[in-house]
């Protein structure tokens, strides 16, 4: 591939307290790509996202974002470098209304979407602007969690299971959104359990197991590798 590498993860190890979760994770994300991390529960996908963001207790190895080593950086400085996380638990703040939640992450650079562009993507957020953040439906909360990181000018978006537990029609809307933000030049690293969904949005897939990356599959080769994938994911 000729694309420029945006994120290079090499030998990433991570610990929560005493438990060693990641055992040397290696992968790359190129500028403008949508890349997924697939794998069973407990494979280390979410921990990988959190480690990139500087949110785990201890980590070692190398995470280079646009030529800058971030492994020793504080999470707010990693965010300021241009990476933004949409966490698995969505992280909507109950003491903030929808607009306050949307406006919470500080703008870290140019290129973010305006509020009206976010409202165009997610009309529900406009209608419910004054509602308490956690009073939204699960789907609306997910839209809010994605919408608020589109505003900041971050170029690499880490989306951790954005479709988890959502109705099919909402999943489709999230899929459209991911394709739309890819067209706008954002780069996306996506954690997914649902590889059928992942196949509709992604360029490449990394498969994780027991805290390491065990395979990489191009999206157009996915059909040919279906047996292997079923085996990896145990589905």
């Amino acid at each position: 591939m000729a694309e420029r590498s945006m994120l290079e993860v090499r030998g990433l190890n991570a610990w929560y307290g005493e438990s060693h979760i990641l055992h040397g994770v290696d992968f790359d994300v190129n500028e403008g790509e949508v890349v997924t991390l697939l794998g069973r529960n407990g494979a280390g996908k979410t921990t990988t996202m959190k480690s990139i963001m500087g949110l785990v207790g201890t980590r070692s190895g190398s995470v280079v974002y646009r030529g800058q080593e971030t492994i020793g950086m504080r999470s707010d400085l990693i965010a300021r470098a241009g990476i933004a996380l949409c966490p698995e638990e969505r992280g909507i703040f109950s003491s903030l209304n929808v607009t306050e939640n949307l406006m919470l992450p500080p703008v870290i650079g140019p290129g973010g979407l305006s509020i009206s562009e976010i409202h165009a993507l997610f009309p529900n957020l406009k209608e419910r602007a004054a509602s308490q953040g956690t009073k939204l439906s699960g789907g609306e909360q997910q839209m809010l969690a994605i919408g608020r990181i589109l505003r900041t000018g971050a170029k690499l978006l880490l989306l951790d299971e954005p479709t988890e537990g959502l109705a099919p029609v909402i999943v489709q809307q999230i899929g459209r959104t991911i394709r739309e933000i890819k067209n706008r030049g954002f780069t996306v690293l996506l954690v997914e359990q649902n590889f059928r969904f992942a196949a509709t949005v992604a360029d490449r897939h990394y498969v994780m197991d027991h805290g390491v990356v065990i395979d990489m599959i191009q999206n157009h080769e996915l059909a040919a590798n279906m047996d292997k994938l079923h085996d990896y994911l145990g589905v």
């Binding site: 500087g54 949110l55 965010a79 703040f93 919470l104 900041t152």
Partner: peptide, 15 residues
């Protein structure tokens, strides 16, 4: 208020 609820996430937004 957000930092009172979840300081780690607020920090990961660049605060």
């Amino acid at each position: 208020r957000a930092a009172t609820e979840n300081p780690a996430l607020v920090q990961a937004f660049g605060v």
